[in-house]
Structures are given as structure tokens and as C-alpha cells.
């Protein structure tokens, strides 16, 4: 999921100082799990905005805020409340914010959250970054652990000299990605494979932004 973190309220206040009325949009997927865009957060945002003398004309939690068409349909019943608001505050990720930007061309839209990374939730609201969306997966060569993400240097062929007792030079809290890969490959009896494979430099063209994808087959006319 996309991991988000609430922005400093004073930064948001600086963004919206010229507006008086707001419509709030949250998201039932990642932002709800991150505690940044679910019901309690929308309620709390409404309260703090009202305490600052602002009006909240309505709020809504999108099922999947990055799904543009679905969100558009879901927002139809809220037309009046949105029309009354000078500004929309989106409490999900940057993708969700830009759904609102696309749907409301003439209205100011501001993000309430910073979007951090694609993460796995390991415990309630504990998140780890495990995939960098690099565009060409190498998990098949690294025992299923991604060194592009798990190693701060993204090293593809073994630990650097900064590995101390199996941990990273960046922080003792980070286990060396290559020690993890080594241990897993050893368990799988695949050390030989690890020794024999030199992973070539990555072709970063697969990560060239902005990326688009049409996953369905176009119907033949």
C-alpha cells in the first residue's frame, strides 16, 4: 500500500489561509490503514479547521481514491457540498489528491498528507518499504528480497564494507539486505546460484517517469 504521513498542520494552514470553506476527501484503502485518511482523521480535521474559524461543507471517504472514475461516481451525491466549498483538502496519498485535481479543474485542491513509500504493514500501523517499483523485478535472482529497496545503496551483488555484524552502516536498526539474501539463499540451498550470478547494472529506463500502462486488451474494431 501507499504509506502516508500527516503533514504539519501549520503547513496546511499556510496553504489554505486564503480560503474559508472546505470539503474533505479521505480514502478507505491505504490512508485508512495508515491512520491518515479514515473516519477518525476526517472528523479530527473538521474539528481543527472549525476551531480555526473555517467552515467544512462536507466530507467523504472514497472507496479507492486513486480510482478516478469510481471516485467521480461516488462523489456525485456530494455535488452541493463540494460546490459550496472554496477548496478541497485530500487526506490520502498524492495519487488521491490528483484524482480530485482531475475531477475539479476549477477548484483549489490541497494535500493533507505526505506520500512516503510503497510499504508492507508488519504490525498495526508499522510500515516497511520493500519494493521501489523499479519496473524490472530482480526478486527472482535475490531470494525474493529486494536489494534495490532494502539496501540504502541499492547494491546488486553483495554487501558493502559498511556491513557491521550483519547490520547496515546507515543504522544498526537496518539488517544488511545482502546478509538477509545470503541467509535466505543458504536456507534454500541456493548459495551456488548466488555465487555464480553477477547481476548486471539496472536498466533504469523501465522507471522513466511518468509511467503509463494499459493492462487490458483493446477491443478490436
Amino acid at each position: 500500500m501507499i504509506i502516508t504521513k500527516k503533514r504539519e498542520f501549520k503547513d496546511l494552514m499556510e496553504n489554505i489561509k486564503g480560503y474559508k470553506s472546505f470539503f474533505l476527501i479521505g480514502c478507505s484503502e491505504c490512508a485508512t490503514l495508515c491512520g491518515t485518511g479514515g473516519e477518525p482523521e476526517l472528523k479530527s480535521m473538521k474539528e481543527v479547521l472549525e476551531a480555526e474559524g473555517k467552515a467544512v461543507t462536507g466530507s467523504f471517504i472514497a472507496k479507492t481514491g486513486c480510482q478516478v472514475l469510481g471516485t467521480k461516481v461516488e462523489l456525485k451525491p456530494f455535488k452541493d457540498a463540494i460546490d459550496k466549498a472554496e477548496c478541497i483538502i485530500v487526506m490520502s496519498c498524492g495519487a488521491g489528491t490528483q484524482t480530485a485535481v482531475e475531477l475539479y479543474e476549477d477548484k483549489a485542491v490541497y494535500p493533507a498528507n505526505d506520500s512516503l513509500f510503497l510499504g508492507n504493514m508488519t504490525r498495526l500501523q508499522f510500515f516497511d518499504e520493500r519494493c521501489s517499483l523499479c519496473g524490472r523485478c530482480i526478486l527472482d535472482k535475490t531470494g525474493g528480497i529486494c536489494p534495490i529497496t532494502a539496501c540504502p545503496k541499492g547494491i546488486l551483488n553483495g554487501p558493502c564494507g559498511g556491513c557491521k555484524d550483519g547490520h547496515c552502516e546507515i543504522s544498526p536498526d537496518i539488517k544488511c539486505a545482502w546478509v538477509r539474501i545470503y541467509e535466505r539463499m543458504k536456507k534454500l540451498n541456493k548459495l551456488q546460484e548466488l555465487c555464480e550470478t553477477t547481476i548486471e547494472a539496472k536498466d533504469w529506463s523501465a522507471a522513466q517517469k511518468p509511467r503509463t500502462l494499459i493492462a487490458r486488451e483493446e477491443k478490436k474494431k
Binding site: P152, G154, I155, G162, T198, A201
Partner: peptide
């Protein structure tokens, strides 16, 4: 060499490159 990470140095906000590493 791959090189010490920027977080060890005096420009901690620098974007680390690591387009390739020592073996490559």
C-alpha cells in the same frame, strides 16, 4: 568502490546516485 553513503558525510540531504556499484 561503491562508496560510503551520503548519510555519513557533510551533505546529508544529497541524493545518493548508486546507478551502478563496485562490481559493475
Amino acid at each position: 568502490m561503491t562508496g560510503d553513503h551520503v548519510s555519513a558525510g557533510d551533505h546529508k540531504g544529497a541524493k545518493p546516485v548508486y546507478d551502478v556499484e563496485s562490481v559493475q
